[in-house]
Each structure stands twice: as structure tokens, then as C-alpha cells.
Nucleic acid binder design. Structure first.
Lengths: 165, 165
DNA sequence: TTTATATATTTTAAGTTTGAAATAATTGAA
DNA sequence: TTCAATTATTTCAAACTTAAAATATATAAA
């Protein structure tokens, strides 16, 4: 057995890139891209409006549904836990940006929506945020954007369908 | 002024998809894809090994650099804050998975690396994790993976270059 | 040497996040 | 009606995360 056996010959034969399988590398790249952009967006929102990204995200959901949403629907759309949404809403209500009312149809449930002031403030947040994201992505051409949109959707679909593992 | 003016005609003329500009929608899709996959991976690691994703990620970095890394280098590679790494390492040292030694070259710095036991355990984590990710991505063909790899890299580059906003 | 500046890490406070257990209300079957 | 199962939310403990301030050491210029 020569020293060369230290190298994983089989991996080379299988035509696998250094650093693991293609799928693994794709996941790492997806994560690092998403983290990089998220942290830039977070910093910008913080610097310009002193608002955190989770609060912005929650308000974005409510801005889209001006009649309000149940907490459970909100947590589903934001893809975070119920307990998480409870806390976020609590702080936003405290600040007067969000209203929380009992659902007349179901006394277990609450419906939350943006207050007048939340509406106004979010509109400003969103405008600046959109400007910022356009600036971040300015070197990307439309075809690349479309390709990414389609392929990310495929990826999401695959992950959802094979969730059992 | 007719009722039709309620619709944002300009947006339609500018050929913008419903829900905002393409760039904005791309960011939302990137984020939700990444979140979905991250939460599936998190659950799997938790169920199988009772290990959290941040700990797994940290150990992955150290597994790749078996001679160890400085805390600052670790936080740079993980793209998280220094204080964050301090706490994670603390807990991993507590559990005997990671060793933390003063850098002989610089008394301000520490070098952390996997312990023997950390090495063994991580190897098992990584094997299962790879299997799981391959399963999640099983419906994705190689060409799509390559396209995503390239386009995500472009996106990251654009975001880095235009970080000023 | 002295001192200013930079670097490596820790500490702290506030906030975010999860998963599990608890509470409360609804629904549907017997 | 009654009761079991389901659903909506909250509470809780533990962990993660950030940004800013503090600490300690290193480096280099005067």
C-alpha cells in the first residue's frame, strides 16, 4: 500500500469536486449567499431606521395582508415557530406598530394587523429596502435572475418532497 | 378618474411582476429556500445526534482544518460575530468536543481544534448529514446544480461589490 | 522607550429562535 | 350532551445572535 492511498481515489473516480459532493457544496453556497445578503440588509435597516430584520419581515407580511392575519398563519408564512411570533408581535404591539385583536370567529385565535403608524413606517422601510436590494443586485442581469428564480423554486420543491430524508 | 386607477398602471407598463421588483422577489425566494432547507437539516441533526446546527457548522470548519483555527478566523469563515463564536466554543469545550489553547505566537489569541472525541463524533454527524442532503436534493439534476452554483456565486459577488448600497 | 494605533477576544444587554409543555377553545363522534 | 382529539396560542428554558463597550496584547512610529 503506497502513500498515495491516503488520497481518496474513489472520490476522484466518481468525479466529485474537492470539499464533498456537489449537493453539499450547493447547500453551503446557498447558505453563505443568503447569510451575506441578510446581514447586509439587516445592517442597512438598523442604520437607517433602527429596526431589526425579523420585525421588518413580520411587518412585510402584514403589509401584504392589510386585513390582518392569524398568528398561526403568520408563523407559517414566516417559517418560524409560534412562540417566536408571539414574542415579536408583543414587542411590535408595545411600540404601537401592530394591532392584536381577538378573532370574532374563534376565541382561541388572534388577528394581527399593522396600525396606521405601522403602515406609514413600513412604507418608508420598504421603499428604502427595495432601493438597497436593487443596489446590491445591480450587477445581475435579468436572465440570471429568472434562472435563479426557477432553479431555487425547483430546489425548494425537491426539499419539500423529500423531507422525510 | 375611474376605478381602474386604483391599479398601479405604471408598474404593469414597466413589466414588473406582482409583488414587487424582480430583485426583491429573488431575495425573498432565496431566503425562504435557505430557511426551509436549514430547518430540515437542523431537525435531522437534532433528532439523530442531539446536536444544533451552529455547533455542527463550527465543528465542520474545524474538521476541515485539523491543526485548528483562531477564533477570529473561525468567526470570519462562519460569517458570524466574534462574541457568537466565543459562546459556541465555550459550550463545545464544556462537552469535550473542542480544545482551546493559547496561541504560542500571540498571547491575545486562542487556537481551537476538534478533540479526538470531537473528530470521531463529527465524522458520524457529517456522514449522516451528507446522506440527508443528498436525499433532499435527489430531484435536482446536475445541470441545475451547476447553474445554481454559478449564479449564486455571481449574486454573492454582486452583493459584496455593491455593499455600500 | 513611550505612546498611539491596531488586533484578538470577552463581556454585556437586548433580542431572536427553537422545541416542548401548558392552556384554552373548537370540533366531531358516540 | 359528553368526551376525545384537534387546533391556536402562550409560556418556558436553553441556546443562538448581534452590536457595542471593555480588556489585553501586539506593533510601529516618534
Amino acid at each position: 500500500m503506497s502513500d498515495l492511498d491516503i488520497i481518496d481515489i474513489e472520490a476522484i473516480v466518481r468525479n466529485e469536486p474537492k470539499g464533498g459532493k456537489r449537493e453539499l457544496r450547493l447547500w453551503l453556497r446557498l447558505l453563505s449567499t443568503s447569510n451575506l445578503i441578510a446581514s447586509q440588509i439587516r445592517r442597512n435597516l438598523r442604520d437607517k431606521f433602527d429596526v431589526t430584520l425579523p420585525r421588518f419581515d413580520l411587518m412585510a407580511q402584514l403589509y401584504r395582508e392589510q386585513d390582518g392575519l392569524r398568528l398561526s398563519e403568520l408563523s407559517k408564512r414566516m417559517m418560524v415557530s409560534n412562540g417566536n411570533v408571539t414574542g415579536l408581535v408583543e414587542r411590535l404591539v408595545q411600540e404601537g406598530l401592530v394591532l392584536r385583536e381577538v378573532d370574532p370567529e374563534d376565541r382561541r385565535a388572534f388577528i394581527v394587523r399593522l396600525s396606521k403608524s405601522g403602515m406609514t413606517k413600513f412604507a418608508a422601510y420598504a421603499k428604502e429596502n427595495e432601493r438597497f436590494i436593487l443596489a446590491l443586485f445591480q450587477s445581475i442581469d435579468p436572465a440570471t435572475i429568472d434562472a435563479l428564480m426557477g432553479n431555487l423554486e425547483r430546489l425548494k420543491k425537491s426539499a419539500r418532497e423529500n423531507a422525510a430524508g
